[in-house]
């Protein structure tokens, strides 16, 4: 029996597992959630794989590419399970996208993407561990909290 499964099963929805401990609320923040979604969250639960981890289970929610990319920015070791009729029908880990478009705001206030021009921000991945991304416009590199506060 999986010891992390302390909460009732969901019928249809998504499980975001192996989130770095403490990052669940940040992940939840960037997901579009409404009244149809009942959510359970495990924070700092024990996991054999990465020590402590966070888990989020969301009923009736299926993630879009942009949401997966956002999660990759926050917790790139997360695994996603898609649940249909109580069973896992698909399970995958996150790809680290090579570019992020329109997801993160550049932290450089002097960057042209923060000046009301008709462009989306765009970053390329420089390093995955720790995650470092680089604005293709001003070349600023961002990691850690700098990324988190700009999602």
């Amino acid at each position: 029996m999986d010891k992390t499964l302390k909460i009732s099963k969901i019928k249809d929805g998504t499980v975001i597992d192996h989130i770095d401990a403490g990052k669940a609320l940040k992940v939840l923040n960037i997901l579009g959630i409404d009244e149809s979604n009942s959510i359970s969250i495990g924070i700092r639960v024990m996991s054999g794989k990465i020590g402590y981890k966070d888990v989020i289970k969301i009923e009736n929610k299926f993630l879009e590419k942009i949401e997966l990319d956002k999660i990759a920015l926050i917790a790139n070791r997360a695994t996603i399970s898609i649940i249909k009729n109580y069973e896992i029908i698909e399970k995958f880990s996150l790809d680290m996208p090579e570019t992020f478009k329109g997801i993160v705001k550049c932290d450089n206030q002097n960057c042209i993407t923060n000046a009301g021009e008709p462009v989306r921000s765009e970053f390329s991945t420089v390093e995955t561990n720790p995650l470092t991304i680089k604005c293709i416009y001003c070349k600023k590199e961002m990691s850690g909290d700098e990324i988190l506060r700009n999602i």
């Binding site: 042209i112 993407t113 604005c135 293709i136 001003c138």
Partner: peptide, 13 residues
């Protein structure tokens, strides 16, 4: 020439 970083790249786009 522009005071903001990335302006020339934006212009080229």
């Amino acid at each position: 020439r522009h005071p903001l970083e990335g302006a020339a790249l934006l212009a080229s786009k």
